[in-house]
Simulated assay, not measured.
Amino acid sequence: MFPGVMSALITPFADGVFDRDAFAAHIEYQLAGGVDGVVPCGTTGESATLTHDEHKTVITACIEIVAGRVPVLAGTGSNSTAESVELTKFAQSAGADGALLITPYYNKPTQGGLIAHYKAVAEAVELPIVLYNVPGRTALNMLPETVAQLSDLPNVVAIKEATANMEQCSNIHRLCGDKISLISGDDATFLPFLSIGGSGVISVASNLDPKRMSAIYEHWNKGEIAQARAVHEELLILNNLLFCETSPIPVKAAVSMLGFCRDELRLPLLPMSDAPRANLRDELTRLGLPLK
């Protein structure tokens, strides 16, 4: 479920307030670029600094703007199971097509705790659930064996794997087979991820270059491996620059360079520093993206 390229959307702000008009323009750019879905209120959307009301406002706005043209996978994860249940119930009532739930961060539950957490959320809704494993953010790795147990829950349909560890991803596929979809959470390894059973990516880079990210997937599905590899390699420098400072600092800067939003983040994140910002602008220029 949720195959192809889904954009992990930034959340634009103007003077500290969610900028719906900028959000709408950016979403239209994504859809025109051929993405297969969008993900509001993920890590890239600065979800950790959104209030619950803002979180709900952003999800609702995304669903309304997309208007059924592609799936909306709403970020509803938290390190509190009760909060995750509340946000996921809201996403279901608002009309989201699925929910993306990060592993609980900071409190570092055991693998048994992870199973109990996801089971509680999954049983509270009928919405398709996508697990999200990103140890670099949460200090917690969800093991393949844990994923296999969770794949038995009827509405756990996929996992976003952001470890860039192909051995771990292969073991998830070995243990789960076709019970759940494997979605990459790492742009730079999207192509090799497809080769071990992956079916898509939740992408940061597609905020900037949805056409090229979509082309990787399209070439792969047509068996055009050399062409897919060529596009993959063309995006490698951009993918590196998007994580040269803590994400979403660089992608927010880059989206502002394209004219879709202000370069405004919420503390404790600060705008991108000057030297990498210049490198990022040069790379956007090299790729022929429409700088403002």
Rank of each mutant, 00 (worst) to 15 (best):
M1R: 05
M6L: 15
A8R: 07
L9V: 03
I10K: 06
P12R: 10
A14S: 15
V17P: 01
F18C: 08
F18W: 02
D19E: 11
D21M: 14
D21V: 15
A22Y: 00
F23V: 06
A24Q: 11
A24D: 10
H26S: 12
I27Y: 00
I27M: 07
E28H: 01
L31S: 07
A32H: 09
A32P: 09
V35M: 07
G37Y: 01
T44D: 09
G45P: 02
E46V: 09
A48W: 09
A48T: 12
T51W: 03
D53R: 07
H55Y: 04
K56D: 13
A61S: 13
C62Q: 03
C62T: 15
I63C: 01
I63P: 00
E64N: 12
A67Q: 08
V70D: 09
V72F: 03
L73F: 07
A74E: 08
A74P: 14
S80C: 14
S80P: 11
S80K: 07
A82E: 15
V85L: 14
T88L: 10
F90K: 05
Q92L: 04
A94L: 11
G95S: 08
A96V: 10
A96N: 12
A96P: 12
G98H: 00
A99I: 08
I102R: 02
Y105R: 01
Y106C: 05
N107W: 13
T110S: 15
Q111R: 02
H117A: 10
V125F: 01
E126V: 01
P128L: 00
P128D: 00
Y132H: 06
Y132D: 03
Y132P: 14
A139V: 11
L143R: 10
L143S: 04
T146K: 09
A148K: 13
L153C: 00
L153Y: 00
P154Y: 00
V156N: 00
K160H: 10
E161D: 14
T163R: 10
Q168T: 07
C169L: 15
H173E: 00
S181R: 04
I183F: 08
G185T: 06
D187H: 04
T189S: 11
L191H: 11
L191M: 08
L191G: 08
F193Q: 03
I196D: 08
G198Y: 08
V201I: 11
S203W: 02
S203M: 06
V204P: 02
V204M: 12
S206R: 04
L208G: 10
K211N: 01
M213H: 01
I225Y: 06
I225L: 15
A228K: 09
A228E: 03
R229H: 04
V231Y: 00
V231T: 13
L235E: 05
L236N: 12
I249C: 14
P250R: 13
P250N: 11
K252G: 06
A254R: 06
L258M: 02
G259C: 06
F260M: 02
R262I: 02
R262T: 05
L269I: 05
L270F: 07
M272D: 09
L280R: 01
T285W: 01
L289C: 01
P290A: 04
